[in-house]
């Protein structure tokens, strides 16, 4: 039994290899890009857009609203990154209904890669938002004693992000595989449906957590009226997810 699509290698040359993870990622990229291109090729600014355009508009504006809900003031700055994160993970989860498909997000390599992008994006947006000094000072809040804990927190949440997604997606695939061997017909269908739901929830959680981390980094400290400063609390999504 394979735990990860990484283990399905189509071609290898030294360290370079083409495994199922990369291949299905490319396929997903192709589907997303070509699908978007096909739909957005005939965009209209009329009052009555086409159904596909309406769908994409709903998706995009929905993501935008979610980002804004998290507390990011200018959602369009983060839309490219966070939106793509959600769409990629969600599409990867939705495609699990296709026979023979191996979700790239069931590979820890993919989830680690995504978590690493978040790990990079958080300081990137943080520094863009409040400058290098401001961002670095946020590690010493409320006191410099918290510096190591903040660093550990940064690293651990990245790891948690990666493992959470991997665990959920992989487990879904694993459970499905096991159930197929035990009860080949009816039950896997139910589990697949459940897996779709789980996959979408995970996509949402992954994107929202990334947004929360970015939000925490971009608006870490702002002086209030009393001259004191308090870190603004991002919404308590993380606790819920961990729970």
């Amino acid at each position: 039994m394979q735990l990860s699509p990484d283990q399905i290698v189509f071609w290898q040359y030294g360290v370079f290899k083409l495994n199922a993870t990369i291949a299905f990622t490319w396929a997903l990229m192709l589907v997303l890009a070509v699908g978007s291109r096909l739909i957005t090729r005939r965009l209209t600014d009329d009052v009555g857009p086409s159904r596909w355009q309406s769908l994409l508009e709903i998706v995009v504006t929905g993501i935008e609203q979610q980002i804004e809900t998290v507390g990011l003031k200018d959602p369009r700055r983060y839309l490219d990154f966070l939106g793509t994160l959600f769409l990629f993970v969600a599409t990867a989860a939705l495609c699990t209904i296709i026979p023979g498909y191996e979700s790239p997000t069931a590979s820890l390599s993919t989830t680690v890669a995504l978590a690493l992008t978040v790990f990079v994006a958080v300081p990137w947006f943080g520094i863009r938002g409040q400058g290098l000094g401001g961002y670095l000072r946020s590690y010493m809040e409320p006191t410099f004693i918290m510096l190591p804990f903040n660093i550990i927190s940064e690293a651990s949440r990245t790891l948690a992000l990666a493992v959470r997604l991997f665990g959920n997606m992989m487990s879904g695939a694993m459970i499905l595989a096991i159930l197929v061997t035990i009860t080949p017909f009816l039950f896997p269908v139910v589990m697949t449906v459940l897996g779709l739901l789980t996959g979408l929830v995970q996509a949402y959680i992954f994107a929202i957590l990334a947004a929360v981390y970015i939000a925490a980094a971009t608006r870490a400290r702002k002086p209030d009226a009393k001259g004191q400063s308090e870190p603004e609390q991002p919404i308590a999504t993380e606790g819920l997810v961990h729970g």
Partner: peptide, 27 residues
């Protein structure tokens, strides 16, 4: 080993490319 670092890098690059593609063709 569950983590294949080449795949990690490749996926990171893929994701960055996807971000650009989505920005270009969707958002």
């Amino acid at each position: 080993m569950l983590i294949d670092w080449f795949t990690v890098v490749a996926q990171a690059v893929n994701f960055a490319l996807l971000v650009w593609l989505m920005k270009r063709f969707l958002y």
